[in-house]
Simulated scan of single mutants.
Amino acid sequence: MIEAIIFDFGDVFINLNKQAIDSEFRKLGLTAWHDDLDVLNKKYEIGKIDEYEFMLGFQKYLPNAELTEIRAAWNSILGDFPLKRLEFLQMIASKYRLFLLSNTDHTHIEKFEHNEGQTFARDFYSCFEKVYFSYEIGIRKPDENVFKYLINNHNLNPKKTLFVDDKKENTDVAEKLGFQVWNIQPELEDVTQLFDKILI
């Protein structure tokens, strides 16, 4: 019997446009994603650096690009947030303890709230008992400590908790810790199909 559900954000609720971000950065002159950009991104996702430091780190590889252009390219990954997903969340919010756990950064969350509007964002956040963004808590998936953090903070029983995420490395760690998991395939499945896909 499932009592709690932990949801990822990107490609679960908000669609991500990975082709757009690749295209936009190519226009600015970035031919390949470097390992040190990956390190930079992860630092930003756990709040070790601020937005200005993050954008400056990118600018090393894009000396002809303005910081505003880099920010716009970075935000181009954010797609639409179908209303049916919010309505689905609102429908189940009274039946389960819901949590949001996302590897994300301040720039993307600010842009999401701007794009969708404060009312939509507030309605979305209010469905959850608690919202956890990696840049605020200083830890990111698939580190198993992020799951232990939620277990301890909210007295969760992993066996009675479902974790929904589009990245297999994240669901694998959660499963190892005893959670029930749904490794959602965004191109084939929708979070609104939860009750069709998982027996809860």
Rank of each mutant, 00 (worst) to 15 (best):
Q59R: 15
E189Q: 13
Y96M: 12
K130A: 14
V12E: 11
L78Y: 01
M1A: 13
H108S: 04
D11I: 06
L37H: 02
D35C: 01
L37D: 03
T192E: 12
R122Y: 09
N41A: 04
F195C: 04
L98F: 08
S102Q: 07
I151N: 05
T119M: 12
K60A: 11
E189Y: 09
T192P: 07
D38F: 14
G10V: 05
D8V: 04
K27C: 10
F88I: 11
E66N: 06
R97D: 15
P158Q: 04
E66S: 11
V39C: 15
K60E: 04
D80M: 05
L150G: 13
I184A: 10
E144W: 07
K60N: 09
L86V: 04
K148H: 15
S23Y: 02
V12A: 10
I46W: 00
K168C: 00
L86F: 06
F163C: 05
V131W: 01
E69S: 12
T107F: 11
L67Y: 06
G10T: 00
D22H: 14
E24R: 15
K95S: 11
W182Y: 13
F54V: 08
D36I: 08
L98G: 08
K84F: 07
G10L: 01
D35S: 11
K167W: 15
K111N: 03
T161H: 09
A32I: 15
E136R: 02
D123G: 07
L188Q: 12
Y44L: 02
G178S: 09
K48Q: 10
Q90F: 08
A121F: 07
K111D: 05
P142Y: 05
Q19G: 11
R26W: 01
M55S: 10
E113G: 06
K197L: 13
K111V: 07
V164G: 06
H154I: 06
R71W: 12
A32C: 14
I77M: 13
L100N: 04
D35Q: 12
Q185Y: 01
K60H: 05
D123I: 02
T104F: 14
W74T: 03
G117R: 11
D80I: 14
Y44H: 00
L16S: 01
D80V: 09
Q90P: 03
K111F: 09
V181G: 00
E144H: 13
S94A: 14
F124Q: 01
H106C: 13
N115G: 05
A73H: 01
E87V: 07
A93W: 07
D165A: 10
L30Y: 01
K48S: 01
P158F: 00
I49G: 02
N64G: 15
I5C: 12
W182K: 04
H108L: 00
M91K: 15
L40T: 05
K95C: 07
I6G: 09
K42V: 00
D22Q: 11
R97V: 10
Q193R: 02
E187A: 11
F112R: 08
I151Q: 07
F7T: 03
K130T: 08
T192A: 10
V164A: 09
T68A: 11
E24A: 14
L100P: 09
I109N: 06
F179D: 12
F147L: 15
L83S: 14
M91V: 01
G117S: 10
H34Q: 13
V181D: 08
V164R: 11
D196H: 15
W33R: 02
E144C: 07
I77L: 15
I46H: 04
P63H: 14
N75H: 00
